[in-house]
């Protein structure tokens, strides 16, 4: 049987998490290729629809990476994102998708190591959870 490689979508805020990803690259810190980064102007810009569509289109895991608490470039977009994530987690459970597949994380632009570590940890968590039930249903 082919080894399961999860597809993970990471919505990364331009000002912090995306820059942290750049930093990880500059520091030659490896992180799993499973993580597909989508740059957004602010984590608060990530809509419930973006997350749900990611799962519908075969993502096994999704995470939203915003700035550290109190450091949002747009004042409180990261707090709004965190509330939205909680809301979408409940909807995922209603649909029948484990809410652990969706996570909110925060980091500063200088945290290249944290970016690589988070990407690795989330990839491993999703690998343990296995393929998303939606992906499984599509392939059956």
């Amino acid at each position: 049987m082919k080894k399961f490689e999860p597809v993970i979508v990471a919505f990364c805020c331009h000002y912090c998490a995306y820059t942290a990803a750049d930093m990880a690259g500059s520091q030659r810190l490896p992180y799993p290729a499973n993580v597909k980064i989508i740059r957004v102007p602010c984590s608060g810009k990530v809509d419930a629809l973006h997350i749900i569509k990611a799962f519908e289109n075969g993502a096994d895991g999704v995470y939203v990476a915003g700035c550290l608490e109190g450091d949002c470039h747009f004042k409180n977009g990261n707090e709004k994102a965190a509330r939205r994530i909680d809301y979408v987690k409940k909807y995922l459970e209603e649909i029948g998708i484990e809410s652990e597949r969706l996570t909110m994380v925060t980091m500063s632009a200088g945290m290249g190591y944290r970016f690589a570590q988070t990407a690795t940890e989330i990839t491993e968590k999703i690998r343990k959870l296995g393929p998303s039930p939606i992906k499984t249903a599509i392939t059956q």
């Binding site: 809509d47 419930a48 629809l49 749900i52 569509k53 799962f55 519908e56 909807y91 209603e94 649909i95 029948g96 998708i97 039930p133 939606i134 249903a137 599509i138």
Partner: peptide
């Protein structure tokens, strides 16, 4: 419109799961 999109995706996925 947004809630229509969310519900359509949610229904589609939940129904797929039930075959």
């Amino acid at each position: 419109r947004k809630e229509v999109g969310l519900l359509a995706s949610g229904l589609q996925m939940a129904l797929l799961k039930s075959g």
